[in-house]
């Protein structure tokens, strides 16, 4: 098993819980031995060593982050601690968002297009073969990726590493301490993405 599952020191990891599938992420993190904090207040960011921005509606999450005074604090957090953004969370992390254009944290130097596959009827579950870099750091074997009204990463800057691709599109990228996935690993039984994230939290 990868190192992430044999935590000697228990890590405290937050899941932004304003809206979205935060509960599914919390279950997975708890299974992997992390202490989970559902984050709804800016002050809770001081208690966590890493943060997951879950799937949900990025429009709604943006509005709530702004309204509840979390936006500035979250940007500071990104300068110090690892963040994993999935689907809507990946959109929040991007440098540039299209369809429509909207504010984002610019924590990962990529351009991402919202709802790029279409509407819900165009959602899909696909098996992808990991890039070697992902397999080396987690485990070998195909990964089930759940795309729900998902975005597509249209371009990444040179400092961004692509860890998973579906056909030619990057679906998991890494820049520095942060990870962004356009799919929902939390809706499968595959723990590798969360294990990888926890290993980044531990080494941060």
């Amino acid at each position: 098993m990868p190192a992430a599952s044999s935590a000697a020191v228990i890590m405290t990891v937050g899941v932004l819980a304003l809206q979205g599938d935060f509960a599914a992420h919390s279950v997975r993190l708890a299974e992997l031995g992390a202490e989970v904090v559902e984050v709804r207040y800016a002050s809770q960011l001081d208690q966590v060593e890493g943060l997951i921005l879950p799937g949900g509606e990025s429009t709604t999450n943006l509005i709530l982050l702004d309204r509840e005074g979390l936006w500035a604090r979250l940007r500071d957090f990104a300068g110090q601690r690892p963040i994993l953004g999935t689907c809507a969370g990946a959109i929040l992390l991007a440098r540039e968002v299209t369809n429509p254009s909207q504010p984002s944290m610019a924590a990962i130097d990529m351009r991402i297009e919202r709802n790029a596959y279409g509407r819900q009827i165009d959602s899909s579950i696909r098996l992808v073969q990991p890039e070697q870099a992902f397999a080396d750091r987690t485990a070998e074997g195909p990964l089930e990726a759940v795309f729900i009204r998902a975005p597509i990463i249209r371009s990444v800057a040179s400092g961004v590493e692509v860890l998973l691709r579906d056909k030619d599109d990057p679906i998991l990228v890494e820049q520095g301490r942060h990870l962004a996935a356009t799919f929902h690993a939390e809706l499968t039984s595959d723990p590798r993405l969360h294990q990888l994230f926890l290993s980044k939290v531990r080494s941060n």
Partner: peptide
């Protein structure tokens, strides 16, 4: 996938 979208709407 059907349940997956409903999951995304939770808390909303």
């Amino acid at each position: 996938l059907k349940v997956g979208l409903a999951e995304q709407l939770k808390g909303g």
